[in-house]
Design a binder for these strands. Structure first.
Lengths: 208, 208
DNA sequence: TTATTGGGAGTGAACGTTCATTCTCATTTT
DNA sequence: AAAATGAGAATGAACGTTCACTCCCAATAA
């Protein structure tokens, strides 16, 4: 009974975040007014404010949800039988399979983090988390001798994040951009960067 | 005499754009108020509006200036004795030498183009211009047999733009990001993507 | 030379609007 | 009855923009 109450609260919060996501993806943080979000969530402002204390809290809530999702997705790499295959799966999941709205929202968060100090902190926290996971992933691969040993893991992690940002950004800004078409080139490039020099052979192939 | 008048007008406009750039880079388009810009330009609102009809016109003006600068920078590649050297120079010029403010401003324009339809048109126009130039650059290199022939030039251009976006974005969002350190890896990757298979040898070297 | 005129440069208070947030009150649940 | 949930009008601050006005200086008229 007291279980259900907390559950209801949590559900309502999730609904509100869903509505906010739609509004933000459509119009951006600044142009999406609380009234819009209230409309989308079929709820009055007064009531909405009982669930989230501010607009910023909505953004933070969305960030947290995304973070949980992003972190979970790293399991893909661990489960894969071979490093590059796992990496390819991760890349596809993050950069191709996401909907346009999800990508747009991601850009929106990135852009907003440049402005709102609190969001910036939250975002950089998430970034650090992801970065650590990438670094860990690379380290593990190096330990298994699946990638070259003479690699600046830190710089390599930067490159991977940079590629992710670039893909996301291009998708959200250029409607004609075809992620599906570009991904193989990206993966080939990354393989060239990370793979051990002697098994460069399948460098152009997307799958073994 | 009538020459000087137009000149003065133009100078004043440039000063205003400089001030606006500083404000936008610092606070973003939405949080930089016209009052802020007026303060930065040491000018009253009424007077500023004699030079630019709206806030949006300021953004457009900045876009145009950047476009001119970006387009001009492609001469770097044409002048270089060898393709990859020119490309490296271009990359350095665009991605490392730029000040933090310039990069931030660039991100701001990209983000804003997702919202303001007029800015979006202008931005996509510029993007198309740059993209064409990259494609032309690649085509010329292919003609000179400096890069591999079996290359999807369109996709390759996308990859290059994506890398540029990623670098800009990372710089503007992550203060600890070291573009200088990452650039060699990026260039090596790009070389791996574009170079003819038989001269892969200096793939790890930054300069011949 | 001095006085008059004209117009562009510049000012800053004021306006109308939008927006996040709060207040008050009604309805439902416990 | 008391508490939780909900609605929606009200509030006040911030913003882009406008407007009535002043200042300055060059050209003309006296």
């Amino acid at each position: 009974m007291l279980e259900t109450k907390a559950q209801r609260q949590s559900d309502r919060r999730a609904e509100i975040l869903d509505a906010a996501e739609r509004c933000f993806a459509r119009a951006g943080f600044h142009r999406a007014s609380m009234q819009d979000i209230c409309g989308e969530a079929a709820m009055s402002p007064g009531n909405l404010y009982r669930y989230f204390p501010s607009k910023e809290a909505l953004i933070a809530g969305i960030c947290e949800r995304n973070r949980a999702e992003a972190v979970a997705s790293f399991a893909l790499v661990d489960q894969a039988p071979e490093f590059f295959e796992g990496l390819a799966g991760l890349a596809r999941h993050h950069l191709v399979d996401r909907t346009q709205d999800e990508v747009a929202l991601c850009s929106e968060i990135m852009a907003e983090s440049r402005r709102h100090p609190d969001i910036a902190r939250l975002y950089q926290d998430i970034e650090k988390d992801i970065r650590d996971r990438i670094a860990g992933m690379l380290k593990q691969a190096a330990g298994r001798d699946e990638i070259r040993q003479d690699l600046d893991l830190d710089a390599a992690a930067s490159v991977l994040m940079l590629l992710g940002d670039g893909m996301s950004w291009r998708r959200s800004v250029d409607p004609s951009f075809d992620a599906e078409k570009v991904l193989p080139l990206i993966l080939a490039m990354v393989r060239g960067l990370l793979a051990k020099p002697d098994d460069d052979a399948p460098v152009r192939g997307e799958r073994s």
